[in-house]
């Protein structure tokens, strides 16, 4: 009984921390983009503008939560919830530190992939239920993009599974004690990262929302809290993809010895995640959005063969005994 209560407490704390972190990311992103564009970014609310997200939240709470009369009411309301819930569910399998982590699911990696696939429903249903052309186009793009990038996202992590012999994320981290997997799975990492950007529809792969062509894409008709929920989902998935990259390729909470004793494992894990979040923001600032057909042909013509080659090579090396 006490164990269950402890688990519940752990889950509550993780969710209670993740949501403010996702909100803070909005401020971090705006500030960083500002710096990289030779501006200052939001710096007025609180010290360094750190309370900007709070101000944004208060503002968005004050907005009218409008459901368009031409929409499919029920689906329209559920869609943003699906997105946020799916991403939050994925965090259940992330091992934050040797002792923290909600679940040591033995199919943790598959669970993550499944949740990533499920979160497509959020975007597709939002696009469909909005019953407007921009939203529908955005939803269609999201469906095509996410489904095609899912394929080689799964394939790119199979190299990791081959080398560690486990789908359990905690075991994958522990298996990296002798050396991070980035050393042998560099190609796999690049493919996973690109697929992850496409999965979380961040720039340069934000075609589902592409504000220059589709107004706001799938969330054109959304306002108020539902809109905020979409954003929460997006920033959470940025954190999730960063966390997964760290877990799968950068040794999770592990650090080489002189560094490891300086800070607790959880702090190292968070620092590594932060590095990737910054990378995502840098991507958004610097790269333009490709055309939709370019995105898909890039996926199928380059990424898929590369992922297959990576998997094949890893398997061959494994069989040849190169990894010991």
């Amino acid at each position: 009984m006490a164990e269950i209560l402890f688990k519940l407490l752990e889950m509550t704390i993780i969710i209670a921390l993740l949501i403010p972190i996702a909100a803070m990311l909005v401020w971090v992103e705006r500030r960083m983009i500002g710096i990289w564009q030779d501006r200052l970014g939001p710096n007025r609310v609180g010290p360094f503008g750190i309370l900007q997200s709070l101000a944004d939240l208060l503002k968005i709470l004050g907005k009218e939560d409008w459901i368009p009369p031409f929409s499919e009411r029920l689906v329209f309301t559920i869609a943003p919830v699906i997105g946020a819930v799916c991403v939050l569910m994925s965090f259940a399998v992330i091992p934050f530190s040797p002792s923290i982590g909600v679940s040591d699911l033995n199919i943790g990696l598959l669970f993550f992939l499944a949740m990533a696939s499920l979160s497509v429903y959020s975007v597709v249903l939002a696009g469909w239920a909005s019953n407007s052309k921009y939203a529908l186009l955005g939803g269609m793009r999201a469906a095509a993009q996410t489904i095609s990038y899912e394929v080689f996202m799964g394939l790119s992590v199979m190299g990791v599974v081959l080398l560690t012999g486990s789908f359990n994320l905690r075991e994958i981290v522990i298996a990296q004690e002798s050396g991070w997997l980035i050393q042998t799975q560099f190609l796999g990492f690049i493919i996973f990262l690109i697929a992850g950007i496409a999965e979380s529809h961040r720039l340069p792969f934000d075609l589902p929302e592409a504000e220059t062509e589709l107004t706001a894409g799938f969330h054109t008709e959304y306002s108020g809290l539902k809109f905020a929920l979409f954003f929460l989902g997006e920033y959470l998935s940025v954190t999730l993809i960063s966390a997964m990259s760290v877990v799968l390729f950068f040794g999770g909470w592990l650090m080489p010895e002189p560094l490891a004793s300086w800070l607790p494992p959880l702090v190292w894990f968070i620092l590594k995640i932060l590095f990737f979040v910054m990378f995502f923001i840098l991507l958004r600032t610097s790269l333009p959005r490709p055309r939709f057909d370019q995105l898909l042909s890039f996926g199928w013509k380059y990424m898929l063969p590369l992922a297959l080659i990576n998997l094949l090579a890893t398997a061959a090396f494994k069989l040849g005994g190169f990894y010991g």
Binding site: I35, W36, Q37, D38, L282, S286
Partner: peptide, 10 residues
């Protein structure tokens, strides 16, 4: 773009 981390804001 990363270089601009060290550029003064306008």
């Amino acid at each position: 773009v990363l270089k601009h981390t060290f550029t003064k804001a306008d």
